[in-house]
Simulated assay, not measured.
Amino acid sequence: MLTRYSPLLFAALLSLTLSASLQAEQMFSDEHYEIHYNAFNSTLIPAEVAASYNLTRSGSRGLINIAVREKQPDGSTRPVSAQVSGEVRNLIQQTQSVEFREITETDAIYSIGSFQFTNEDLLTIQLEVQPDAERPAYQIELQQTFYVD
């Protein structure tokens, strides 16, 4: 687990989440948690931010970002850790397992995983997100086309 503060990563991921939400809301919510997620080309992360977090930038490498927030009685939310696993599958059913690592900052906790793709790859991303070991994991699936930069 990385535990250093970097406003650069927070700003980069926040801007990606906001731009993704303009296209389509990528959030799951129930009475306990909000799970925010997005997938994007790794070249969208600034080089200095990628280097500081040991993230590989490549025109054919994607990143998946997941942030879980627990709902509080007063209506606010707070960031929480979660066990995250996933896989990426292309149209001909080739599958890649995605390993996630957690990055903790002052006011945010992210799980980041990476995967490879080819140009115009329509990928199905299946995620299991488990913020509470006493409850079943949430199943999240998204489809997205990726383009090589």
Rank of each mutant, 00 (worst) to 15 (best):
M1R: 13
T3D: 05
Y5T: 07
P7R: 10
P7C: 04
L9S: 01
L9Y: 05
A11G: 09
L13C: 06
L13W: 07
T17E: 13
S19W: 13
S21D: 07
S21G: 08
Q23V: 15
A24T: 15
A24H: 15
A24Q: 14
E25A: 15
Q26R: 13
F28Y: 13
D30A: 15
D30L: 14
E31C: 14
E31N: 13
H32G: 12
Y33M: 07
I35H: 07
I35V: 11
H36W: 08
Y37D: 03
F40I: 06
N41A: 06
T43Q: 12
L44P: 02
I45K: 01
I45Y: 01
P46I: 02
P46C: 03
A47C: 09
E48N: 12
V49G: 05
A50F: 03
A50K: 01
A51Y: 11
A51V: 10
S52A: 15
S52N: 15
Y53F: 10
Y53W: 09
N54W: 12
L55I: 13
L55A: 08
L55M: 10
T56F: 11
T56M: 12
R57A: 06
S58I: 07
G62S: 05
G62Q: 08
L63R: 08
N65F: 03
I66S: 00
A67N: 07
A67F: 04
A67I: 07
E70V: 02
E70M: 06
K71N: 12
Q72Y: 02
Q72S: 05
P73C: 14
S76I: 06
T77L: 00
R78P: 05
P79H: 01
V80S: 02
S81D: 03
A82G: 06
V84P: 02
V84L: 06
V84Y: 06
S85K: 11
S85A: 09
G86D: 00
G86V: 02
G86Q: 06
E87C: 09
V88T: 04
V88E: 06
V88W: 01
N90P: 04
N90H: 02
I92H: 08
Q93A: 11
Q93F: 14
Q96T: 09
S97T: 15
V98N: 00
E99H: 13
R101A: 03
E102W: 02
I103Y: 10
I103S: 00
I103G: 03
I103R: 05
T104K: 12
E105Y: 03
E105C: 02
D107Y: 12
A108D: 00
I109R: 04
I109K: 01
Y110S: 01
G113H: 00
S114D: 14
Q116C: 03
Q116M: 06
F117E: 00
L122A: 11
I125T: 05
I125N: 00
I125F: 04
I125H: 04
Q126I: 11
E128C: 08
E128I: 01
P131R: 10
P131V: 03
P131K: 09
D132T: 07
A133K: 14
E134W: 13
E134F: 14
E134K: 14
R135E: 15
Q139R: 11
Q143P: 09
Q144C: 09
Q144I: 10
T145Y: 08
F146D: 01
F146S: 01
Y147S: 12
D149L: 07
